[in-house]
Simulated assay, not measured.
Amino acid sequence: MNVVRPLIKLRHVLLVPLALAALASTPVFAQPEIIIRQAPPPPRMEQAPMARPGYAWDNGHWRWDGRGYVWAPGHWQRMRHEGRWMPGHWEARGPNWYWIEGRWVR
């Protein structure tokens, strides 16, 4: 009886769950932290559309494109979690401005 074949199969059986666990713990994407020394312009006033079931309105905001601020208009966020949508915003920390991504809060 050949003992090597069952050991090879056993090794594959053990490696597959380990590989899947490693993939599951790896972030899908990493967003770089945006730090700017120039304050963003005042927000534009946008009228939010009527409520839409299953969605939350994400207000427009100024985003940094590498050379300056450009306006990103508001859009709908599909509800993925219970809770409410907290829009992204710029936050001052000393002389720098940091972009804080929008997120769902419970």
Rank of each mutant, 00 (worst) to 15 (best):
M1A: 13
V3K: 13
V3Y: 15
V3W: 15
V3C: 00
V4P: 11
R5P: 01
R5W: 14
R5C: 00
L7A: 12
I8F: 15
K9H: 12
L10S: 09
R11I: 12
R11T: 12
R11W: 15
H12T: 08
V13Y: 15
L14A: 11
V16I: 13
V16M: 14
P17V: 05
P17C: 00
P17Y: 08
L18K: 13
L18F: 13
A19V: 12
A19F: 14
A21C: 14
A21M: 15
A22G: 11
A22T: 04
L23E: 05
A24V: 08
S25A: 14
S25Q: 11
S25I: 10
S25L: 13
T26S: 10
V28H: 15
V28F: 15
F29A: 07
F29I: 01
Q31S: 07
E33M: 10
I34P: 00
I34R: 08
I34A: 03
I35E: 03
I35M: 01
I36R: 11
I36T: 10
I36M: 07
R37L: 07
R37Q: 08
Q38H: 10
A39F: 01
A39T: 06
A39V: 01
P43K: 09
R44L: 09
M45H: 13
M45L: 14
E46L: 02
E46H: 09
Q47E: 05
Q47T: 00
Q47G: 04
P49I: 01
M50D: 13
M50I: 09
R52G: 03
P53T: 06
Y55R: 11
A56E: 13
A56V: 08
W57E: 01
W57C: 08
D58I: 04
D58A: 08
N59I: 07
N59E: 10
N59T: 10
G60M: 07
G60V: 05
G60W: 02
G60D: 02
H61R: 12
H61G: 01
W62K: 05
R63W: 02
W64H: 06
D65F: 03
R67S: 07
R67G: 05
R67F: 02
G68K: 03
G68E: 02
G68F: 05
G68V: 06
Y69R: 11
Y69T: 07
V70G: 03
W71I: 01
W71F: 05
W71A: 00
W71H: 06
P73S: 01
P73H: 07
G74D: 05
G74E: 06
G74F: 04
G74Y: 04
H75E: 06
Q77W: 06
Q77G: 06
M79D: 09
H81V: 03
H81Y: 14
E82M: 14
E82T: 12
E82N: 14
G83K: 12
G83P: 11
R84M: 07
W85F: 10
W85M: 00
M86H: 13
P87Y: 04
G88D: 05
H89T: 00
H89K: 11
H89E: 07
W90T: 08
E91R: 15
A92G: 01
A92Y: 04
A92R: 15
R93L: 03
G94N: 03
P95F: 04
N96Y: 10
N96H: 11
N96M: 03
W97Y: 12
W97G: 02
Y98C: 00
W99V: 01
W99Y: 10
E101D: 12
G102A: 06
R103D: 08
W104E: 08
W104K: 10
W104F: 11
